[in-house]
Write a protein that binds this DNA or RNA. Structure first.
Lengths: 241, 241
DNA sequence: TAGTGGTCTAGACCACGAT
DNA sequence: TCGTGGTCTAGACCACTAA
C-alpha cells in the first residue's frame, strides 16, 4: 500500500480515538513529515485525502484543523456502498430479502436506449424485484441493464448481490450515479405488492449508474413505501485539491 | 491563479470542444508537462482535479482517457449551488419569488438543539417561506438558523438570497449538507399554501447544512409539490487522489 | 521490453495569519 | 516578522500494460 494512504489511515485513527480532538489543529505538515519520516509533499497528499473525506480543513497561514460533527457527517461513508441499494445499507441491523417477480431479456424501448446509450437491437435485462426488510414489503425495484456489459446475470445473483458480481466477478469499477427523487400517488402495482392504500404516497428514486469509463450500465426506478425510513446522503461542497 | 488550475481549465476546454474526444487517450503526462512547460507533478495535480470532477480516468500502464457521457454527468455541476435551493437552480429559466410568512427569533426546541449542536438558550431564527415559481406555489420552506452564526438576517435578505449573504457579507465557507428525502401525505399547511388536494403526496427534503469547519448552521424542512419537477444529483464514486 | 501512470523526495518560493 | 499551509520543480524508482 502507498505510504500516503497508510499515513491517512493512521491520522484518521487518531482523529477517531481523540488523539486529535474536534476543532483542534494538527501538528503541522513539517512536524508530521518528521514524525512519519517522509516528505512534506507526501503528508499533503495524505491530508488532501482526509479533507476530501470531510475530516479536516486547512487555513492558509494558520493550521489544519479537525472538523466538528465528523460523526454525523462522515460516519455515513457514502462511497460505492450507496449504489447497492438497501442490501448493504441495512446490513447487520435488518434482514433484507428479494423476490424476483420478473427476469426477462428483451430489446430496449426508446427511453432506455436514451438513458443507457444503446441501439434498438442491444438487448437488455428487464428485472422486477420486490425488496423486503424484516419480511415486510419495502420497495419495488425495476432495473434495466444491457447484457453486453453485464453478461451472465442469473436469478441466483439477483437474490444475492448484483453489485458484488459486477465488481468482483466482472472486475468492473463503478464511477458514479445520477439519482432523482420525486413523490407520486400509489400505482396498481404499489397497492398490490407493497400493500399500500390507494391514498398512500410513494417515494420514487430514479437511478442511472455509470462505470468508471462513463458507460451507463443500469437504469432503475424504485418505488419505496413512504413510511419505511428515509433516503439520506451527505453532499460535500465543491472540493479543492 | 495556480498553474495547475489554469492547466485543468485548459484541458477541460479541450475536452468540451472535442480536441480530446470521449473515450480517447490524452497525450501522456510527460508530453503534457513539456507542452505546458511545467513538471509532471503539476500535470498530475491538474489531472486529479479533472478525475474528481468526472471528466477523466487513468489506467496505470496504459494512459489517461476522456470519459464517455460527460455531458449527462458533469454538466450539472453540483457544487455549492445545490444548497441555494431553487433560487439559483431555476435562474434564467423561471421566475422564483418568496413570500415570508413567518420570521421570528426564539429559543430552539430539543430536536433543533440536536441537529444544530446548540444549547437551549442559543437563540435561533424561525423562518417560514412559501416559494413560488412563475407565480405558482412550489414549496414551503421551514428554516431554523442560529443567530450567533448568521447575525443580522432580515426580511430583505430572505427575499433576495440567504446564501449570498452568508458567503459574501459574512465571508463564511460552506462545507456540505446532509440531505434526506421522503414522501408524506399533504398536511393542513400543504393544502392551504400549496393548494394541494388532500390526497396529493408531498416530497419532503430535510437538510442540515454545515460550514467548512463542520459547524451546522441550517436545519430546514422543505415540503415540495409532487408534480413540480424532480430533485436530481450526481453522486461520484469514492474518489482516489 | 519499452512506455505509461503512481508514488516519493528534498528542496524552493509564495500567500497568508498570528503576533 | 515568523511560521503556517499552498504551489512547484527535476529528478527518481516502482507497478503495470501493451507490443
Amino acid at each position: 500500500m502507498a505510504k500516503y494512504i497508510d499515513i491517512a489511515n493512521d491520522l484518521k485513527r487518531k482523529i477517531k480515538d481523540g488523539t486529535y480532538a474536534a476543532g483542534e489543529p494538527l501538528p503541522g505538515q513539517k512536524n508530521l513529515a518528521e514524525d512519519y519520516k517522509t516528505s512534506r509533499m507526501t503528508i499533503q497528499k495524505s491530508l488532501s485525502l482526509l479533507k476530501a473525506e470531510g475530516y479536516l480543513y486547512s487555513q492558509q497561514g494558520s493550521a489544519t484543523f479537525v472538523k466538528k460533527n465528523i460523526d454525523s457527517l462522515s460516519n455515513l461513508d457514502i462511497g460505492v456502498d450507496q449504489y447497492v441499494g438497501i442490501s448493504k445499507l441495512m446490513e447487520g441491523k435488518h434482514k433484507v430479502t428479494s423476490k424476483v417477480s420478473k427476469f426477462e431479456i428483451r430489446y430496449p424501448v426508446e427511453a432506455e436506449c436514451d438513458k443507457l446509450s444503446l441501439g434498438p437491437t442491444d438487448a437488455v435485462y428487464d428485472i422486477l424485484r420486490l425488496r423486503l426488510v424484516d419480511e415486510e414489503p419495502y420497495s419495488i425495484e425495476h432495473t434495466i441493464m444491457p447484457i453486453s456489459i453485464i453478461p451472465g446475470l442469473d436469478e441466483n445473483i439477483l437474490n444475492h448481490s448484483v453489485y458484488e458480481y459486477i465488481q468482483g466477478e466482472l472486475g468492473l469499477e463503478i464511477g458514479g450515479a445520477y439519482r432523482q427523487f420525486s413523490a407520486k400517488k400509489s400505482s396498481e402495482a404499489d397497492i398490490k405488492y407493497l400493500g399500500n392504500e390507494s391514498t398512500d404516497p410513494v417515494l420514487v428514486i430514479t437511478n442511472v449508474v455509470y462505470l468508471e469509463s462513463g458507460t451507463p450500465f443500469e437504469y432503475s426506478i424504485v418505488d419505496q413505501k413512504y413510511d419505511k425510513g428515509r433516503f439520506g446522503m451527505f453532499i460535500p461542497s465543491q472540493a479543492k485539491y
